[in-house]
Design a protein around this nucleic acid. Structure first.
Lengths: 236, 236
DNA sequence: TTAGTTTTGGTCATACTGACCATAACTAGA
DNA sequence: TCTAGTTATGGTCAGTATGACCAAAACTAA
């Protein structure tokens, strides 16, 4: 236990180490109902501490990359995916997050589109889990995922983030399913469509989605901008 | 220029250093109009880089303190103040924020009440400035302050943050002045008071503010909880 | 006593929301 | 081919919040 080459006083003297982690969300159909639900990829710890438990993908910050670049690199390295949305979540720096050393984690959260997510790498040590059915994770990662979910729900209510979980073209019912999956409650189809139709960033296309079992719905396109981070801010 | 004891390759190898800074807001009466305006304390750089320029208070993260403790310590050390509100703003980690080394700054923002703010230390190297009249600051600190202002405005619209810029008892007109100072536009007194009276966290006291030039306004008290950080979250 | 100013309560038209109803358009199966 | 089932789509209606505006109340200063 608490294996390390350094003794206590040496660890006390060393500066806190800095790591980047990422909470990656994507939609996948639930096995039971088939309706879209939130999933996220985790990696298995192969070393102490917390060896064997699942954890958020992450790693140290390398010298020549910005925080966001580091987040998007470790996203690509663990899952093979490119995010359609990436934003800083929070810097977690509690004293006892790791039992072996003081580590400050700057955590990002990302959304990937379903076409991408279908291609995601999976292996013995990388697996996708339903966001509402995670077990006990390593470190404080359960709390981090909870906070990321809270942010996702908030951003959703505000506006432009839902479309980053969908492909380029989508039906209004698909957008509603995203909201229902993330907020975990049913929404009135008619009222929901009225709201979307009143937002100028959602553009009607001439196309319809064919092949469904019922009346073919019209396809729409999102024409908005992403977020309002200091790192990529356009209009306040 | 670029003075340092380490040469380039040594700097490349060293891990990015980690610092904590804080944007501290308080209300002070404007010299011209006398109405409350936003001010913040800055410290003068006494070393390169940016020697002589003003910068946000900050310093390295010491080993035995959490991020928030570090922020509140350097707030106390530079101004002698205890914040009534303190929240993480963002982690800034661009590659070229400092010309001499790679540094990642985790920035907090704070509000202090005017009774406290009146006691603030000021000296040759610590001075308060109007938030809308800063000159050129060291590093990327102008951008950081801009972002902090944006966050403050946002939080204000949402809810509970304005009262942390006021004392325990306040009139509705004083709350309105806070909003007007931060949002930089005038608000209708009657409509504004209607909104405040409909929020349950604002409690009427039996007291009135005496000594004014006109009809004495009733005093109120705020009974809400602070914020919704992962570090201090109560009800989502 | 009066003028001036702020506090406070009120109206009115408009906009948005949630609950709900009705029709259109398509598929699947009889 | 017809009919039932389901989703897509458009609409109404009451309740609530918002911004513009009016008016009385209450105090000070002169």
């Amino acid at each position: 236990m608490y294996s390390s080459s350094a003794n206590v006083s040496e660890r006390q003297a060393a500066p806190p180490s800095l790591a980047i982690s990422t909470v990656i969300f994507a939609l996948r159909p639930s096995e039971s109902s088939g309706r879209p639900t939130l999933w996220l990829p985790l990696v298995r710890r192969i070393r102490e501490p917390f060896k064997g438990l699942w954890a958020l993908p992450g790693g140290p910050l390398s010298h020549a990359e910005s925080l966001q670049d580091a987040a998007s690199r470790n996203l690509r390295e663990t899952t093979g995916l490119a995010p359609s949305y990436l934003e800083q979540l929070y810097a977690f720096g509690g004293l006892h997050r790791s039992p072996t050393q003081r580590v400050v984690s700057i955590v990002y959260w990302a959304l990937v589109q379903p076409t991408e997510a279908a291609l995601a790498d999976e292996s013995e040590n990388v697996r996708w889990f339903r966001a509402d059915r995670l077990g006990e994770l390593a470190f404080d990662h359960n709390a981090i995922v909870d906070y990321a979910l809270w942010r996702l729900r908030n951003k959703l209510a505000y506006g432009s983030v839902a479309y980053h979980l969908l492909g380029e073209y989508f039906t209004l019912a698909q957008v509603r399913e995203v909201y229902e999956a993330v907020l975990d409650r049913e929404l009135d189809p008619a009222n929901f469509r009225r709201q979307l139709k009143s937002t100028p960033e959602i553009e009607e296309t001439g196309e319809y989605l064919q092949g469904g079992k019922h009346r073919p719905p019209r396809l729409y396109r999102f024409t908005g901008r992403p977020g309002l981070d200091p790192d990529n801010r356009s209009t306040p």
